[in-house]
Design a protein around this nucleic acid. Structure first.
Length: 829
RNA sequence: GCGAGAGUGGUGAAAUUGGUAGACACGCUAGAUUUAGGAUCUAGUGCCGUUGCGGCGUAAGGGUUCAAGUCCCUUCUCUCGCACCA
């Protein structure tokens, strides 16, 4: 007997046809997602449903930190890519809360950055003003998606109370000797008018604007990330990240082992070092190459060669990075006129200058072994330099042989393989003082200053007497002054340089006149440590309280785009390790588990872009279909980690599903014991949804919920014992609908405070299974048998089956294989 | 070129340890319903054929196995990252 009845519009309008079949569909069947969603968003906000505190009674293993990569608050608002990762982490957070975990799930804004500044240049509007406006826009948009953030922990990197601590970390880096000034040629984006880190240059172009990057020599602040190269590499082992991201970081760090070898000039005047990973091929070195920027170039150039070398250097300098690294291009170079002595055999070999050798790697000079290095081989062929085979296995006149083999023409290395001779030659070089074992990295120090306005000021005062002096901590935050023009000067000075009253100050050390550093920090600075500030966002005396850090760290799940593989994720790891070394944090690594969501492409699998006009605006989707549909669709599209194409038809399908769920919830509730087959379906559904949600396999969890609804939809009433658990299962996915249906059942909110349903393994097992009968591996019949039927019985059933008999008749049975609850395969000849 | 990952219907995709390929959804087809607002309900839908049956089928080719989307080898294609790193 129904104990409670839901008065619903659908019921009032339900139709009973001539056969007495009633149809619970009607004009009103579209569920009122707009009302429901608004209602529950306000409820969560007012009740602070998702606020968390550091409750010491919660055991450590029940504390969970689920983090999203925070967005840059652009004036464009959210795009459909944002809700993908945010929904995934939100479902996981809500799910884990219901499973008894205390979940920290915060959100904030990476609010320093170029777009606001560029907008300021165009319109004169202060970046601070636009940024605050955009943050409000983002918060409103994010709230319409029903995410369970603890909004009391929100941070924005551009606010002084936040960047005070970004500056504080810079001072610590400076104290540790990890921040230094240098004037060196760096990547310069002529469009953004600022220097860039190596990580920000993609294929010779600015990662942000796509302009071709050139070289410019300006004074820079640089962070010694290379000092942490080994630890950044080794500690990747500790992390639960995908292999592809780990390998990108490994490649980026680019550790290689080899030797530094000293070469003397033939006239004995000078000695210089080269780095090689193949010291075993020293006997095959037939020439040397200096990079055009190498300090020795001038000295080794003979008078006769001077004009040619000069011309070459000028040409090399004119080339952009893009041209210099273009592999399709022929190798170029010029002979200096001088010779070096090969330390292993005393032979004189010519010294060339060529731009295929980079000044920024190793010592900027190489020994060229054309027989066993493809680049050297191409150069030798072009300039007709000798090619000597020192390792057998290929034909060095046809191409460089880089494989392993036995050494020849190498005196004491002859007959040894690659590995052994590398060891032997290094020992030999070290004993003679001619060289030493060496390690090199592709990773370069981090060019940290930007010649722009809208970033954290670097808290340094330049004093003629004392040099660069850090501001005392009490003077932080050092805030940005108002400026008249935001325009970058392009001279290597930021717009701050024009504000005399800000620039001119006193030296904190000697009290004499000083000038403030006018460069600002890159956008990555703020995002290097924001996950720590969430733990204690209002702390005025420290970055975050160590007890709170210990309570939550490390981040248990970090969800975001793969585009940050070697930028944010490498920089943040670096800072975290520095903070670890000075005792500010207690973990070696910040982000234990990382999941990268795939990109959402436009319809048809092409990239979403304004120019193609295929950009989907989340606001429109939420208005027309509701946030729950948006959330569920993005999770149903496919696996979280892969790219997938948007389909509004697909979205409508998921919306239809939620509509069906709603219509079920309109049916009368009965408290009777549900039939067993429904109970079994429920328990299977609980199991599948639980396991899949835990593994972030949301698409298959949703498919199971659809199967459940398709079955249950046949009934004219709903069994409370089935429906309550189902509403709980769907609630992390469609939280507004979940809350609404929960109270509709007569319960009190919030459903997120209820314990996640449990399944009984017994009820998830089928009593009857379909066993496939095969002959020679082909399915010839199917029979339904009780689960657990013994193999012998299966075989007997198969052999006696008449359809099988048709296939085995007259043939010799060679073998019968039976797999319990699966199949029988009869092999005949 | 090097590194990583991926190729399954018309589409997005499912598929413990190798054990019914294509769950779920979109689209499509047919039918039902005077059907307000991206309707709903029912049935069908991998391809081919002589359609109450059979053949073929997970990028291509080969192999291991009673049995391969899954394991091994070769080739091709695509995506991402790096790109003269000595």
């Amino acid at each position: 007997m129904p104990r409670t009845r839901n008065l619903s519009s659908s019921e009032l309008l339900s139709v009973v046809d001539a056969n007495g079949m009633s149809e619970y569909h009607s004009a009103m069947s579209k569920y009122p997602f707009n009302e429901i969603e608004k209602k529950w968003q306000e409820y969560w906000d007012e009740q602070k449903t998702f606020k968390v505190t550091e409750d010491p009674s919660v055991p450590e293993e029940k504390r969970l930190y689920v983090l999203d990569m925070f967005p840059y608050p652009s004036s464009q608002g959210l795009h459909v890519g944002h809700p993908e990762g945010y929904t995934a982490s939100d479902i996981y957070s809500r799910f884990m809360r219901m499973r008894g975990y205390k979940v920290l799930h915060p959100m904030g804004f990476d609010s320093f950055g170029l777009p606001a500044e560029n907008y300021a240049i165009k319109t004169g509007t202060q970046p601070r003003v636009t940024t605050e406006e955009n943050i409000n826009l983002f918060i409103n948009q994010i709230k319409t998606l029903g995410f369970s953030y603890d909004w009391d922990r929100q941070v924005s990197t551009h606010r002084p109370e936040y960047f005070k601590w970004t500056q504080w970390i810079f001072l610590k880096l400076f104290e540790q000797g990890l921040a230094y000034e240098d004037e060196a040629p760096i990547n310069w984006c002529p469009s953004c008018k600022t220097g860039l880190a190596n990580e920000e240059v993609k294929e010779g172009r600015c990662d942000r604007c796509g302009a071709e990057v050139n070289r410019k020599s300006i004074r820079q602040w640089i962070l010694k990330i290379t000092e942490y190269a080994d630890r950044l590499l080794e500690d990747l082992e500790l992390l639960d990240w995908t292999e592809s991201i780990k390998s990108m970081q490994r490649n980026w760090i680019g550790r290689s082992e080899g030797a530094d070898v000293k070469f003397k000039l033939a006239d004995g005047s000078e000695e210089f070092e080269v780095y090689t990973t193949r010291p075993d091929t020293l006997f095959g070195a037939t020439y040397m190459v200096l990079s055009p920027e190498h300090p020795l170039v001038e000295q080794v150039t003979t008078e006769a060669r001077c004009a040619d070398v000069q011309t070459y250097l000028e040409e090399a300098q004119k080339k952009s990075d893009l041209e210099r690294t273009d592999l399709a291009k022929d190798k170029t170079g010029v002979f200096t006129g001088s010779y070096a002595i090969n330390p292993v055999n005393g032979k004189e070999i010519p010294i060339w200058v060529a731009d295929y050798v980079l000044i920024s790697y190793g010592s900027g000079a190489i020994m060229a072994v054309p027989g066993h290095d493809q680049r050297d081989w191409e150069f030798a062929k072009k300039f007709d330099l000798p090619i000597i085979e020192v390792l057998q296995g290929g034909d060095v006149q046809k191409e460089a042989f880089i494989g392993d083999g036995l050494h020849v023409n190498s005196e004491f290395l002859d007959g040894l393989n690659k590995e052994d001779s590398i060891e032997k030659i290094i020992t030999w070089l070290e004993s003679k003082g001619l060289g030493k074992r060496a390690v090199n990295y592709k990773l370069r120090d981090w060019i940290f200053s930007r010649q722009r306005y809208w970033g954290e000021p670097i808290p340094i005062v330049h004093c003629d007497e004392c040099g660069p002096i850090p501001l005392p901590e009490e003077e932080l935050p050092l805030t940005l002054p108002e400026v008249e023009s935001y325009k970058p000067t392009g001279t290597g000075e930021s717009p701050l340089a024009a504000i005399d009253e800000w620039v001119n100050t006193t030296c904190p050390k000697c009290g004499g006149p000083g000038k403030r550093e006018t460069n600002t920090m890159p956008q990555w600075a703020g995002s290097c440590w924001y996950y720590l500030r969430y733990l204690d966002p209002k702390n005025e005396t420290q970055l975050a309280d160590l007890d709170k850090i210990k309570y939550w760290m490390p981040v248990d799940l970090y969800v975001g785009g793969a585009e940050h593989a070697v930028l944010h994720l490498l920089y943040a790891r670096f800072w975290h390790k520095v903070l670890y070394d000075i005792g500010v944090v207690n973990t070696k690594e910040p982000f234990q588990r990382l999941v990268n969501q795939g990109m959402i492409l436009g319809e048809g699998g092409v990239k979403m872009s304004k120019s193609l006009g295929n950009v989907i605006n989340p606001d429109d989707i939420i208005r027309d279909f509701g946030a729950d549909s948006m959330r569920m669709y993005e999770m149903f599209m496919g696996p979280l980690q892969v790219s997938k194409a948007w389909s509004t038809k697909g979205l409508a399908g998921v919306h239809r599903f939620l509509d069906r769920v709603w219509r079920v919830s309109d049916r009368p509730v009965i408290d009777e014991e549900p039939p067993k087959h429904y109970l079994q379906l429920l328990h299977k559904t609980i199991k599948k949804v639980t396991e899949d949600t835990e593994g972030l396999e949301f698409n298959t969890a949703i498919a199971q919920m659809m199967i459940f609804i398709n079955e249950i939809f046949q009934e004219k009433q709903i069994y409370r014992a089935l429906w309550e658990p189902f509403v709980q299962l769907i609630s992390p996915y469609a939280p507004h609908l979940g809350e609404e249906m929960w109270v509709k059942l007569g319960n009190t909110p919030s459903i997120s405070d209820t314990p996640w349903p449990q399944w009984e393994e017994e009820l998830t097992r089928e009593e009857e299974v379909t066993v496939v009968l095969q002959v020679n591996g082909k399915v010839r019949a199917k029979v339904n048998l009780p689960a657990g039927t013994e193999e012998e019985t299966l075989k007997k059933t198969a052999i006696e089956n008449e359809r099988i008999a048709q296939w085995t008749g007259g043939k010799q049975v060679v073998k019968v294989i039976a797999v319990k609850d699966k199949l029988v395969n009869i092999v005949v000849k």
